[in-house]
Design a protein around this nucleic acid. Sequence first.
RNA 1: UCCUCUAUAGCUCAGUCGGUAGAGCAUGCGGCUGUUAACCGCAGGGUCGUAAGUUCGAGUCUUACUGGAGGAGCCA
Length: 463
Amino acid sequence: MDIVDVREIFRNREQYLGKEVTVGGWVRSIRDSKTFGFIVLHDGTFFEPIQVVYHDALPNFDAICKTNVGAALIVTGTLVATPEAKQPFEIQATEVVLEGDSTPDYPLQKKRHSIEYLRTITHLRPRTNLFQAVFRVRSLCAYAIHRFFQERDFVYVHTPLITGSDCEGAGEMFQVTTLDLNNIPKTDDGKIDYSQDFFNKPTNLTVSGQLNGETFAMAFKNIYTFGPTFRAENSNTTRHAAEFWMIEPEIAFADLKDDMLLAESMIKYIINFVLENAPEEMKFFNDFVDKGLIERLQHVASSDFGHVTYTEAIEILEKVNDKFEYKVSWGCDLQTEHERYLTEEVFKKPVFVTDYPKEIKAFYMKLNEDGKTVAAMDCLVPGIGEIIGGSQREDDYDKLAARITELGMKPEDYGFYMDLRKFGTARHAGFGLGFERCVMYLTGVSNIRDVIPFPRTVNNCEL
RNA sequence: UCCUCUAUAGCUCAGUCGGUAGAGCAUGCGGCUGUUAACCGCAGGGUCGUAAGUUCGAGUCUUACUGGAGGAGCCA
């Protein structure tokens, strides 16, 4: 018995029509009349389910009628075209084998459930239309990102998840320790004795692979990282998670313009790849999650992203300051409401905001000639806000050392990072793309918890 | 962490002015020869998130707590 994927049947239907097929899947819906019944079977390989018709000629007809939603079945029968009906074809069953039954209290019923309810059944929600579509697109999106960089000969670098560097400074970190928290060893002066910890010093989960990535960029020229990232921030929003994935390319002999070109072509590549390879899923999002999604993505993929400097952006925003709860002026950080106004009202497409005041950006960003701004860029997209943050890196040893000192940090804590500026420094740039935010943008799904298979947020670490 | 909203049947919700609980779907049983979240009939199903308070009486009013949602900050 060769079980064929439903995807294979839909994609090569002519080859299967009129022939006997065997499929294995889970019951989405089942209903019976006196002498026959219908099963909507979904096998996970394709967004659309396949309809099975079973008659009372089957020896186990009564048992099939009692089958519950969610049960696993293996069905053999003839594939018949149904041009008059809603579905293109169906299987006239000659054999229905109950692989594993379900029960009447199966939490997914053949009706619409709220997304919040589905969130409470993390282990079952992948069986629903919405999450089938989300997680197939997530998978394709990851593949598209690897393809994009590999086609351009970027080297994929696995930067460490456990870091002993306490100088990443991008948010709260999760500490990693093997110390017995019920009996913490102390030194004579009462501090925690990390000499007894696994790594002989305090360690944390990474909040960014960028600094490590830079070392490889200064060896391989073009590299990217793609891996999990951890932030212990107490944020409770639709777009923050404690564990998320990030893509961080780093390119040498390149400046901020090259960086933005890379970011823009990457976003367009991902959009085109997903539209081409998940048409059914994208149509579903367009119809039921975010009307106008496909048109918007196609528009983004075929037009140039907007560009505006921070200073210009402030000028634009100051003219409509009465719209905002937080008034803008040069030097202030852009709030969510300002970012949304820029990308949703002014540009109506993704826009790069560049050259921010150095005070509101990280220490490693390249100081511009004006001495006031740095070569930073944020890419803002409608509906999500910041999806990419990047910069050209400060490659001048003395300027970087001065900036580190200016911020009250110690250059000696950044030994390896300073060495890169000492031994053959070169201009270089990079950015970080929030993978989940990218999936949200592609699908129109508005809560990050619904694009992560097993989301970890404050107070929530199920399964 | 702050602000706002919210919690009633397995699910989605209604419940008026404070007077001891209702619908649809789902489930069970019966009917139906082509359904599309099938349809028709009958039935079962509730400590109204938790704890206190006001009241003759609380799903309804008050307070606290817990969970959920949205917004803000932080960021990707």
